[in-house]
């Protein structure tokens, strides 16, 4: 239950981090440590070099300009949850950030860490898929941008190359409109058994599920039936195609329930 030895490097800029990451093989980035350190305590992960991003200046900034949100990867879940701009213009993101783990976890865990870790039951990767966000990945080779929808490849698997750092996230504030969120967890702060982001437009609907597949599961449909029975039957039939990692029948049921809850939340707010 103690980590294996490693060397520790604290960097002050993204450039230094990118240099260190390309210089040392078997190095890992350390952000909030709320996923990595448990793995190291169990010795499931034994990096020989840790590059600590905590000291990077202004790595937690949020800005909103001409409808584009730019959030740097180092923001903690709690700051994202409390940030006035996020609360005002992307309330669904502020809301779901408050569901990530417990207070003490949120005070340290970061957006970039959660997005890169790609736990299938995590709220934030699914939020980014629902928002159709762009991730900026930085390395000594330069920068590239990928959409959240292309970034996730499978269980704990992303398009991030070994020498890349997720540095910024962009999305349109207007895309956060009309997205609503619901999840079911055994206790507050536990990983969700199932969760959904539902976006309802007049002629189309988007659903992004998490916790019920190996990665965020996004689909686009026509308008939803307004009639309750028909709508729930549709959610149930869509959920029956999901492939949860365990408790298949139960999680599919929950997936239909959270989709309906997110939908109803939206209808209440938009009414």
């Amino acid at each position: 239950m103690k980590p294996a030895p490693f060397s520790y490097i604290r960097v002050a800029t993204v450039e230094e981090a990118a240099n260190a990451l390309s210089e040392y093989t078997d190095a890992k980035l350390l952000a909030g440590g709320q996923s990595l350190i448990p793995l190291m305590n169990y010795r499931l992960s034994k990096p020989t070099v840790l590059i600590d991003l905590c000291g990077i200046e202004a790595f937690a900034s949020v800005s909103l300009k001409d409808d584009v949100f730019t959030i740097r990867a180092g923001i903690t879940h709690q700051s994202l949850h409390e940030h006035p701009l996020v609360r005002a213009y992307a309330p669904v993101l502020a809301e779901c950030a408050g569901e990530v783990g417990h207070w003490a976890i949120r005070n340290r865990g970061t957006l970039g860490g959660s997005l890169a870790h790609a736990d299938p039951a995590s709220e934030l990767p699914a939020a980014m898929v629902a928002l159709d966000a762009r991730f900026v990945l930085t390395s000594v080779r330069g920068e590239r941008t990928v959409t959240a929808r292309d970034f996730y490849l499978g269980l704990f698997t992303t398009d991030l190359a070994e020498d890349e750092i997720l540095t910024r996230i962009h999305f349109f504030a207007s895309s956060a409109n009309r997205i609503h969120f619901a999840e079911i967890a055994r206790r507050p702060g536990d990983f969700a058994l199932s969760g959904a982001f539902v976006r309802v437009e007049e002629s189309a609907t988007e659903i992004t599920w998490f916790g019920v597949s190996d990665m965020p599961y996004h689909l686009t449909l026509d308008a939803l039936p307004v009639e309750e029975k028909a709508r729930q039957a549709l959610f149930t039939s869509l959920a029956s195609t999901l492939e949860p990692l365990d408790q298949t029948v139960y999680r599919r049921k929950l997936a239909a329930v959270v989709a309906e809850r997110a939908y109803l939340k939206g209808r209440r707010v938009q009414a």
Binding site: M1, Q34, N107
Partner: peptide, 21 residues
């Protein structure tokens, strides 16, 4: 020692954090 029980919680700059993580 993996963040779940909370027994190791201390305040870092006034905020609760897991000292095991």
């Amino acid at each position: 020692e993996h963040g779940v029980c909370g027994a190791c919680t201390v305040l870092v700059d006034g905020k609760p954090e897991r000292s095991c993580l």
